[in-house]
């Protein structure tokens, strides 16, 4: 007799179910790649050590982009570092998330009129969570991480999908700002 309670799931539903299970693991074990570009990076040591202890959330620092889930952009980004940031971001394995620190990643902050610093990080790579402030409090940083977990739970942390979908737009912005993302000169041959 066919059970009425358990109607067979379609493939999409099964995929969704698996994805939800995966999301549970992903949000409880976020490994960070810290791209310490600016002054906000100083907020990370207290967040990691005994004062706030981010390890209790399952977060930890990782050595390379291949292993990491979250890219932390801590502060202003000069054009030179933006190249490297994009390169590192593209090396990360999916799903991947970005957290932007401080007002510099939102609107340029105190460097908003500099010729060498970009103003809006979201123009070049997709940011999932911003942590505002110049510089943000450690509590704010921890809050940002918890927000990211909530976003993953509610499937709203989809920056990497946006990057794939609107890739042409992002690439155009990158090229407009940088000329070319990859540099080829005598120092890199």
């Amino acid at each position: 007799m066919k059970s009425t309670k358990f109607s067979p799931m379609t493939n999409e539903q099964i995929d969704r179910k698996w994805w939800e299970i995966g999301d549970f693991f992903r949000r409880n074990s976020l490994w960070m790649l810290m791209y310490c570009t600016g002054c906000c990076a100083i907020e990370l040591p207290p967040a990691m050590t005994s004062a706030y202890d981010m390890e209790r959330l399952g977060m930890g620092p990782m050595a390379t982009p291949r292993q990491a889930d979250v890219l932390l952009v801590t502060g202003y980004l000069s054009l030179k570092t933006l190249r490297r940031l994009i390169y590192s971001y593209e090396q990360m394995s999916e799903p991947k998330y970005i957290v932007g620190f401080g007002s510099c990643t939102i609107n340029g902050g105190i460097y908003h009129d500099s010729h060498a610093v970009i103003n809006q990080l979201d123009q070049y790579i997709p940011v999932d969570v911003y942590v505002a402030g110049c510089m943000p409090n450690t509590e704010a940083v921890m809050n940002g991480f918890i927000d990211l977990m909530e976003l993953i739970k509610s499937k709203k942390a989809d920056g990497w999908k946006r990057y794939e979908k609107n890739n042409a737009w992002y690439k155009k912005n990158q090229l407009d700002a940088l000329g070319s993302v990859e540099v080829k000169d005598e120092f890199h041959q």
Partner: peptide, 18 residues
Amino acid sequence: SKKVGLMDTYTAGNFIYT
């Protein structure tokens, strides 16, 4: 897994072509 080339490897963000 996604296939990538051998040169697409971790170089601490540096661009190396050799």
